[in-house]
């Protein structure tokens, strides 16, 4: 079954992913996604009923840290690569009106 990706869907996914695509990019994205989803749909040939989804390959479990402070004042390193900063903070466009 061929997947059809609408303009609205591309628009919506662009909002989720915070990507602004040009008209041409949008067309390409639609086609790419349709083809990929058709390809991915081959997975539907597999009967996976009753199969537990596997997110981790190994039975690694209960990996913990103790509650001990190990880090000191990190502001210099934290801000080292900041594109814009002020008062030891990252500066961004105003977030509320």
């Amino acid at each position: 079954m061929a997947n059809i990706i609408s303009d609205e869907t591309i628009e919506y996914v662009g909002i989720l992913a915070k990507l602004e695509l040009s008209g041409e990019e949008k067309e390409n994205a639609k086609q790419d996604m349709e083809k990929m989803l058709d390809y991915i749909d081959t997975l539907n040939e597999l009967d996976t009923a009753g199969i537990e989804p596997m997110s981790h390959v190994f039975p690694v479990q209960n990996v913990f840290r103790e509650d001990v402070v190990t880090n000191g004042d990190g502001h210099e390193e934290t801000l080292k690569n900041a594109p814009l900063q002020k008062d030891n903070s990252f500066e961004v466009p105003k977030t509320i009106g």
């Binding site: 591309i10 996914v13 662009g14 990507l19 695509l21 390409n28 994205a29 996604m33």
Partner: peptide, 20 residues
């Protein structure tokens, strides 16, 4: 949007879109 659209190349955008 501008930052990410300028900063990422086509293949990266393709996979981010698919993943999202």
């Amino acid at each position: 949007k501008k930052t990410r659209s300028e900063g990422f190349g086509a293949e990266v955008k393709r996979r981010i879109m698919l993943g999202s």
